Simulated assay, not measured.
Amino acid sequence: MTTVALDTGVGPLLRSWREQRRISQLELALRADSSARHISFVETGRSRPSEDMILRLAEHLDIPVRERNALLVVAGYAPRYAQTALDDPAFGALREGMERLLHAYDPYPALVVDGRYNVVAANRGITMLLEGVAGHLLAPPLNAMRLTLHPEGLAPRIRNLREWRADLLAQMERQIALARSAELRELYEEVSGYPAPGGSDRADDAGPAGDGDGNGNGNGNGAIERSGPALPLPFALPLHIEHGGRVLSFVASIATFNTPMDVTVAELAIETFLPADRATADHLRSLTS
């Protein structure tokens, strides 16, 4: 994944991160046990920061470990954090642990993505939702954003696509601001260019798909039985998605590793989809019973 240009001085880069975090030189100095004068000298290039100072400032600015490596290289130091391939034998316990977690979450959907939203592991619940997705989107590497937003992916079956799409794109924008990655920016430009849904989201339409009678009884030709709430949940944005003649409802959560010491691990995210209602949970359990 591309990171910051290495021909930029470490001082201006640190200043850019500080300004992005909206922290004053004085506040950063207090956090890092330094002085505002020294922070100013570092940012203007009048003082060369030590390796320890760069890492301390990066810690208090919450800079991703990949970017911390870039700062160290720009300043003339060796990278501190390794970048180990996920299939490396050293990560055997990590892979096994993630696989156990995903398996334990079945039949509810769960997956692991890397820093570019490529799927590195998934359970049967995810496989179930991917039924009907175009084959070219399932060719490695599977990308979660493409799978979700592409018109030949999950998008046509997402009943509240307008809201869900806006949330995913906002998530990507925050990630781009944090990681400053050219690859993420390219992916964002691609998926944000997919056809956007128009009009009202269908999540509020209780009528069955196909017959347009609006009675919501779920017994017409091509009918879609509702198993999720028509109204948004009070605590999170749900995902309403059609599957097997039903509308399933999920609430997504994302977990990352605490205090990662490897770039690969730092960029992994485990995303799980919790049923938002009893009918969705019962339906998923019935598929695996």
Rank of each mutant, 00 (worst) to 15 (best):
M172G: 06
G212R: 13
A236R: 13
L239Q: 08
G210I: 15
Y117W: 09
G115S: 03
D201G: 14
A177M: 15
N217T: 12
E163P: 01
G218L: 05
A170M: 03
A182R: 09
A206E: 15
R185P: 00
P107L: 08
A121L: 13
D114H: 02
P208T: 11
R226E: 09
A121W: 02
I126A: 12
R202P: 04
L168N: 08
E190R: 06
E131Y: 01
V112W: 04
A170R: 13
R162Y: 01
D114F: 00
R162C: 03
L129D: 04
G216C: 13
R162P: 00
M145P: 00
A177R: 09
R146F: 01
A209P: 02
M172I: 03
D213N: 10
A223V: 14
Y105K: 09
R226L: 10
G214L: 07
E189H: 09
V120E: 01
V191E: 13
G218F: 11
F235I: 13
N118G: 00
Y108V: 07
G193Y: 15
N143E: 04
L137M: 03
T148K: 05
H136C: 05
A110L: 02
G207D: 11
P140H: 00
I176F: 13
N160V: 00
P229G: 08
R100E: 02
F235M: 09
L233S: 04
G222F: 11
P109Q: 12
L187Y: 15
P197C: 10
M128W: 01
P232N: 14
A203Y: 09
L169C: 02
L231C: 01
H240Y: 15
A122L: 13
A179G: 01
L137C: 02
L129S: 05
R162W: 03
P109E: 05
G207R: 12
V112D: 03
G193K: 05
S200R: 15
A179R: 12
A139N: 02
W164L: 05
R180S: 03
H136W: 08
I176K: 07
E173K: 15
P156Q: 11
R226V: 14
L237E: 14
I224M: 10
G212L: 10
P156D: 12
E99Q: 09
S200L: 15
N123L: 01
N123G: 06
L169N: 03
G199F: 11
P109H: 05
D205E: 12
P107C: 06
P140N: 01
D167V: 03
N123Y: 02
V191M: 10
Y188Q: 08
R185G: 14
N221H: 12
A179C: 13
R174D: 10
V120F: 00
A122T: 07
L147W: 06
N217K: 15
N215R: 14
L187V: 12
T127E: 12
R124F: 00
A122Q: 10
N219K: 10
I126P: 02
M145T: 10
N215I: 14
M98P: 02
L178K: 04
P234G: 07
E183W: 00
R165G: 08
A144Q: 06
E183Y: 00
G222S: 12
N215T: 08
E190A: 15
G125A: 07
G220R: 11
A236Y: 01
I158G: 15
V112F: 04
H150N: 08
P232Y: 06
V119I: 13
Y194C: 11
L111R: 06
N160S: 03
L129W: 09
G218V: 03
